[in-house]
Simulated scan of single mutants.
Amino acid sequence: MTGIPAAAPVEARFALAQAPFEIAPLRQGLLLAHAGAYASFEGWVRDHNEGRPVRGLHYEAYAALAQAEGQRIVDEAAARFAIAGVRCVHRTGELVIGDLAVWVGVSAGHRDAAFAACRWVIDEVKARVPIWKHERYADGDAGWLHPL
């Protein structure tokens, strides 16, 4: 796949957030006249992992490296897929069950590119961005997990 024509540059942004964030303004930035499709992914903190009840978690990141690698991923998506825009935000710090942990949004001329790019971005973020998850379990135990 190729990117959209140079006349319409791709909006690509990655960010870390230490506090809860609103999705609506992020989505608004992807509503472009030349885009006919939008796809998004929301990852939430769930109450279990691998059969163990989870009480909450803490995300830590090597911020400078995480920001650089996250930006590299959205830039790669912009070059790899026929999309109009892509954004990704990942939380750090303390999160509780149900909190939004990561969000990806993609706009494109057509749905196939939007869906494919959205899936690719979250998979790459989970595999490549130096963010570690410290889960706290109901039995009082805790453990670090990476990749996400």
Rank of each mutant, 00 (worst) to 15 (best):
G70I: 02
F115T: 13
A7P: 11
A61F: 05
H48C: 02
V89A: 08
L57E: 05
A64R: 02
S107Q: 00
R111D: 14
Y62N: 08
P20D: 15
A7V: 06
L100V: 08
E69Q: 03
D141K: 06
I73A: 05
A68D: 13
P53T: 05
A24C: 12
Q28R: 13
V10E: 13
V129Q: 02
W44Q: 07
V86T: 01
E11Q: 09
A101F: 05
E69D: 07
Q67F: 03
I73R: 01
A77V: 03
Q67Y: 04
A116V: 06
L100Q: 08
A138I: 06
E69K: 02
E94T: 15
L32P: 13
W103T: 12
L30A: 03
I23F: 03
A108R: 04
V54R: 08
G143S: 01
H58R: 14
A108P: 14
D141F: 02
W103C: 12
A8E: 13
A64T: 09
R55L: 14
L16V: 09
A61P: 12
A61N: 00
V106G: 02
L95N: 08
L148D: 06
I23L: 12
P25F: 03
A37R: 06
W103D: 13
D139G: 01
E124M: 10
S40Y: 13
G29T: 04
A113V: 08
G70A: 03
P25N: 00
A61Q: 04
A142C: 11
A61I: 00
H58N: 15
L95E: 03
G29S: 00
I73N: 00
G36Q: 03
A6R: 08
A15L: 04
E42A: 13
V104E: 07
V89E: 07
P25H: 04
K126M: 11
P9Y: 02
L100M: 10
T2Y: 07
P53D: 09
Q28I: 10
V54H: 07
V86S: 06
E11F: 00
E76Y: 06
E124V: 11
V125F: 02
I97Y: 04
K126H: 10
I83Q: 00
D141Y: 00
A117F: 01
F41R: 02
H90G: 09
A37L: 09
V89L: 07
A101I: 01
V54M: 08
A114F: 08
Y59R: 04
R128S: 03
Q28A: 15
S40D: 15
Y59Q: 06
L32N: 10
G3S: 12
Y38A: 09
A108Q: 10
R111A: 14
F14E: 08
R52P: 14
Q18M: 00
E42H: 10
A64D: 11
L95V: 08
G143C: 01
E124C: 11
A19L: 15
E135W: 02
R27I: 13
R111G: 14
G51Q: 06
D75F: 05
G3N: 09
A35L: 03
A24F: 11
L100N: 09
N49D: 15
F41C: 10
W103P: 12
D75N: 10
A12D: 06
S40W: 10
G70Y: 01
